[in-house]
């Protein structure tokens, strides 16, 4: 399970980094989402991986899963959700105002001018 989770985080992170290095806002947003998924799984794993263990105190149970990372992940998910929503709106506005979905829209206009 450890290897599987580690590979999961690795693939998500590398995919995210690859995508945020692209020049279109859409792929940058996708990349940021993948990075935030990776970090969520990572935070989970930092409470160590357990199977079938309760996080809340129960009678007759001696071993528990760490409840704190689960709370942290919840907060992180909410925050990244809100941020992504804001970023999508912002990039839509940028697309409308700058007439391009390039993250560096002015540079693109120059190139377009040269081509035509």
């Amino acid at each position: 399970m450890e290897i599987l989770i580690a590979l999961c985080i690795a693939f998500l992170t590398s995919g995210g980094i690859f995508l945020i290095l692209k020049s279109r806002t859409f792929s940058v947003i996708l990349g940021l989402m993948m990075l935030s998924y990776a970090v969520n799984v990572f935070l989970f794993a930092m409470g160590r991986l357990h199977i079938d263990k309760p996080a809340i105190l129960q009678k007759g149970v001696t071993e528990y899963a760490d409840p704190l990372p689960q709370a942290l992940v919840l907060t992180a998910i909410v925050i990244s959700f809100g941020m992504t929503a804001f970023l999508i709106v912002l990039s839509l506005r940028a697309r409308k105002e700058l007439d391009s979905d390039h993250v560096d829209a002015e540079g693109l206009e120059k190139n377009r001018g040269e081509k035509s």
Binding site: L32, V39, A76, L87, L90, A105
Partner: peptide
């Protein structure tokens, strides 16, 4: 809008790294 977009994207990457640091 253009620089706001830059500012936001780089800070979102920063937030992700912050969580990685805290988690580790």
């Amino acid at each position: 809008v253009r620089f706001g977009l830059h500012y936001m994207i780089i800070n979102l990457v920063g937030s992700v790294l912050f969580l990685f640091g805290i988690g580790a």
